[in-house]
């Protein structure tokens, strides 16, 4: 339950304010979207002007139009042996393989932390050691251990995704209402039935939120891992382009990475709405 400081102010003065806020709601339905769109337009305009008037050398900042052409060029002709679609596919494959691995490991680990003293005692220090580490700090070690192939990249991305999934699962487990568990107990549920049929479902909204955070963490780790060691992928594409000073492709890669991260976020939110429509009504 969230406790809002505002609601603790005596009722009389707040009542008219509440009415006013509610009355404004229809007008504010656009939210901040127009302002955000205007901001983006201004940035692109400034960027265009800066490159059109030669304020910055095209080597450092190619025009937006050049970047668009670069995206088209990479999509059709490719760059370093692969098309944009192939680079993107290679990256997405890694992220989803890592996501699958970290869900399979993370959810049981989170359940163990949330429900068992022994589980918490064993896993807490491991998670707390891993969580604050930047993944690039242990990437070289992982490469020494398991080589430079796909396995090492997927391992590093999984390690980056694990803490948010484990911690959100544990938090979801702990927030399962006592009445939900007691109800099941009074109908004769076993411990395993309570875990799988009451605690796990009631933790799913929290798990999905954790997965969304993990996707964000995984995506940034992925690009970084590909910068270091890969022969295909968006991070690799940027790194190669930078070595040849092909700045338009560097920027094109950044734009594509941002666009995919944005789409993943939207996908995760859609999944939340689809899987746990009840979370909003809790």
């Amino acid at each position: 339950m969230t406790i809002n400081i505002g609601t603790m102010i005596p009722a009389a003065p707040t009542a008219p304010v509440d009415v006013a806020v509610e009355a404004q709601q229809p007008k504010r339905s656009f939210g901040t979207l127009p302002i955000s769109l205007a901001t983006i337009a201004v940035i692109i305009a400034a960027w265009s002007l800066a490159s059109a008037y030669g304020v910055v050398s095209p080597l450092f900042l190619p025009s937006p139009w050049t970047v668009l052409k670069a995206i088209h060029g990479v999509a059709v002709n490719g760059f370093v042996d692969s098309t944009l679609a192939q680079h993107t596919f290679a990256s997405l494959l890694r992220i989803f393989a890592a996501l699958a691995a970290s869900i399979v490991i993370g959810i049981p680990a989170g359940l163990a932390i949330g429900t068992s003293r022994i589980g918490k005692g064993i896993l807490d220090p491991i998670v707390e050691f891993l969580r604050p580490l930047p993944p690039l700090a242990y990437l070289p070690l992982i490469i020494i251990w398991i080589g430079i192939g796909e396995a090492s990249k997927i391992t590093v991305i999984s390690l980056a995704m694990l803490p948010p999934i484990i911690l959100s699962t544990a938090a979801g487990v702990k927030s399962a209402p006592a009445d939900f568990i007691n109800a099941a107990r009074s109908f004769g549920a076993t411990r395993l039935q309570i875990l799988l049929q009451v605690i796990l479902p009631s933790a799913i909204p929290s798990i999905l939120t954790g997965t969304r955070i993990a996707l964000g963490a995984g995506w940034s780790t992925l690009v970084a891992a590909e910068l270091v060691a890969a022969s295909r992928g968006l991070g690799f594409m940027i790194q190669s382009a930078a070595q040849f000073l092909v700045t338009d492709i560097v920027i094109a890669g950044i734009v594509v990475i941002a666009a995919i991260a944005f789409l993943l976020e939207i996908l995760a939110r859609l999944l939340e709405r689809w899987f746990v429509p009840w979370a909003a009504h809790r």
């Binding site: 009445d179 007691n182 109800a183 004769g188 009451v198 479902p201 009631s202 746990v276 009504h281």
Partner: peptide
């Protein structure tokens, strides 16, 4: 145990 079923004030129905 199942021989003593409880009905709760906050219904405790499972929203899923």
């Amino acid at each position: 145990d199942a021989d003593r079923a409880v009905v709760f004030q906050d219904d405790a129905l499972y929203p899923w």
